[in-house]
């Protein structure tokens, strides 16, 4: 299984988002670097809108994630409810 990852800027906007991602992906590993958090996960990583909204206490559009995204790897599938990064192998 290959690793996918998502790197986000570390700031007040992303704190609850990172928490939500780690909550929804128990297999994910969080790697903190200066001003940046890289979340690595075997095979697949799912970002769920609902979990972020719960932690944020407001409506959240997954496209907002782009404001704080630094880099990623894997194929991407995005809907209103989820953003999924995955490798097929």
């Amino acid at each position: 299984m290959s690793t996918v990852f998502l790197a986000l800027q570390t700031n007040e906007d992303t704190r609850p988002i990172i928490e939500a991602i780690l909550q929804d992906n128990p297999h994910a590993v969080c790697d903190e670097q200066p001003a940046m958090v890289k979340i690595n996960a075997e095979g697949k990583l799912v970002v769920r809108r609902e979990t972020i909204e719960e932690l944020l206490g407001r409506d959240y559009d997954l496209q907002e994630l782009q404001v704080n995204m630094i880099t990623m790897s894997g194929n991407l599938d995005q809907t209103d409810d989820e953003m999924i990064l995955f490798w097929k192998n």
């Binding site: 800027q9 001003a35 782009q66 630094i70 880099t71 990623m72 790897s73 991407l76």
Partner: peptide, 16 residues
């Protein structure tokens, strides 16, 4: 750099 990278995620996906 980080601000440009936030666009890069889109570009990388386009590339793939």
């Amino acid at each position: 750099g980080f601000s440009a990278q936030s666009d890069e995620a889109r570009h990388m996906t386009l590339g793939l």
